[in-house]
Design a protein around this nucleic acid. Structure first.
Lengths: 349, 349
DNA sequence: CATCTGTGCAACATCGATTGTGCAAGCTGC
DNA sequence: GCAGCTTGCACAATCGATGTTGCACAGATG
């Protein structure tokens, strides 16, 4: 490529078609009817545009209209099946509306979240989807100051609409199946179910813990604080906590509720060193679904959040211009062990 | 929000600081030294900017400089651990350079790929990373016409630099471990290893098939065409092909090389209906790694592509301005069954 | 005192598209 | 035959930031 020819602009089309730039603009963006441009001129311009390979400069358009056609979403990590599903749903919905999705992961770091949101706003995104932020309300403040429509998915915020999974119901179902199918342990120390992973500052986590506590108390008469280990999401930390717990108990507890796939990955990195029969006296469940997680060496009950419905519902609210802090809850599904949910890409992938 | 105040612009800062817009621009973007603006004026302007909460409109800047600060990447699907890792690496590298990553999935649909690339170019992305396109060379043509720097990762293209995994080596290692540890089958029909998944039009797949063929021929003396089933990536299709194969053979083959995680998901959806002992007479491997996939009910050998190095190397080429079609191959790692690779987010996620 | 050399900043054109406004040609009606 | 209307389009301002050019003023020089 010795000579770099610049991309053709609207003026190039105008020259080629023998029309003015404003007429070309109208002809190409559909406003020609309103602007009383003759159909004949329009077809001539369209032909010229196609002929020289014109495509609009969306930055220029965005600048003029102060709408970019970009929609942003921030989420904690890509390497997590749940958030990956959110991305996939988000892309599909955005494209359906002729928008360009911009997905950013912020690693649950509040500073990074803020920096990222500011960057997205600087690109004049039309709206922002916030999926699991460490500090949801700080983001709302920024968006409000910049007048950017935004919505929470997965984790609710208080200053904007939220579409989230019904965390209590999901955790209730998972807790029940764990508690009700726990084997009776010879060692009483191991007879109790445990909850591991997540942070109590996270509203979703605290709802899930509530459900867990209620179910355990209901079924077993009591629960002690040490049965809830909200040690964060980092796999390494979960692995260490789990190792310490099993040391104390002399083996895996009869029931284990793992909160989130990242924590579950940590659990797995501890499990790999255990003998195969270590799992025989335990029932394990994980809030969030992964198709491979569903078919592990030991059976795992999983809760599948409906990312499609979460995102679609959120988009509908955005389309409707909702800015009031409503809260919509979507029911998740309990997936039995060794069952594969046949997702949307079963025939594409 | 009854009154919507527009975002402050450079002129607002100018007014607040008692300076001209051009001086403000210079003061804020660092070019003030070169433009002989006094340090005192600069600090005054910076104070004013901070005070009224100014942030640059990146669309306007992009329009003027004809560089947007956006870098694009297209990939087939988000819901796949390998591509999710690519996204994660890509984000990190982009942010390190002060760029904003835009990641789009195109579902291996050539038309969608083209549409998406055109959209990204319309937003004036500075460069494009192409991870696994159905029609790589068509995309190169578009990028060249628009003068957009681009690079292939994962799957090579012929008109631009490529950084890919050493598919042959990876597949060779995986094939060897499968063939060498296959149990001897009482039923001779099931004694042979099979390759399933992917498309022969995909260069990575065809290299992996080459390696598989060579290893099988080398170790077992021969290979028949029916041992390679390149039925695409769709999980559903893989499940059906596998079911048909096992019907014919009267059970799982002694060795199974599954090409790609999406195909493996399909395999899994067939496996769930098999009795637990069905896997005892088989060795299974998968090209691509998933931490949960590594700990399934049956042992699985996996090949982990080094997404960090792939992306980093690609970024270095882009930084260096390389446009010649070089090919760089990165060695992948063979991960033994029931081993968890401790990824970068072990302490964050 | 007149000229010369810097210094510090403002004015203005520009990027490419959108949009309010204006103007000429063609037509109607009386 | 002329006001008045419609039709079809061009002109020019605008979005916000950048960078080139040029101007005013200060101090230095002869």
């Amino acid at each position: 490529m010795p000579t770099r020819k610049p991309k053709p602009t609207i003026s190039d089309v105008a020259a080629a078609a023998g029309a003015s730039p404003s007429t070309v603009s109208a002809a190409l963006n559909g406003s020609w009817k309103r602007r009383r441009i003759s159909e004949e001129t329009v077809t001539r311009i369209q032909a010229a545009a196609a002929q020289i390979g014109y495509t609009a400069n969306l930055q220029a358009r965005g600048l003029r209209k102060s709408r970019s056609g970009l929609v942003g979403m921030i989420l904690p990590v890509h390497e997590n099946r749940f958030f990956a599903s959110m991305s996939q749903s988000f892309e599909a919905c955005a494209r359906e509306r002729g928008l360009c999705p911009v997905i950013a992961s912020t690693l649950r770091d509040p500073k990074e979240e803020i920096r990222t949101v500011e960057t997205l706003i600087a690109y004049a995104i039309d709206s922002l989807f916030i999926a699991g932020a460490a500090d949801p309300d700080a983001l709302s403040d920024i968006c409000k100051a910049a007048n950017v429509q935004h919505i929470y998915v997965d984790l609710p915020g208080k200053d904007a609409p939220s579409v989230v999974s019904h965390n209590y119901h999901g955790a209730e179902q998972l807790s029940r199946v764990i508690v009700d199918t726990m084997p009776t342990q010879s060692n009483p120390a191991r007879a109790k179910p445990y909850f591991v992973g997540g942070l109590t500052t996270n509203i979703a986590t605290s709802l899930r813990i509530d459900a867990f506590r209620t179910v355990v108390t209901d079924r077993l008469g009591q629960i002690s604080p040490e049965q809830v280990i909200a040690c964060g999401y980092a796999p390494g930390q979960t692995a260490r906590e789990l190792a310490a717990l099993c040391d104390r108990l002399g083996g895996l507890p009869a029931g284990l509720f793992v909160n989130s796939l990242t924590a579950f990955e940590g659990a797995l990195s501890y499990f790999v060193d255990l003998p195969p029969d270590a799992f025989e006296q335990s029932v394990i469940g994980c809030y969030d679904y992964d198709p491979f997680g569903a078919f592990l060496q030991f059976p795992v009950h999983m809760v599948r959040q409906n990312s499609d419905r979460l995102i679609q519902t959120a988009f509908e609210l955005i389309d409707a211009g909702t800015t009031d802090p409503v809260l919509i809850e979507i029911e998740p599904d309990l997936i039995p062990p060794r069952t594969i949910y046949k997702g949307r890409f079963s025939e594409i992938g």
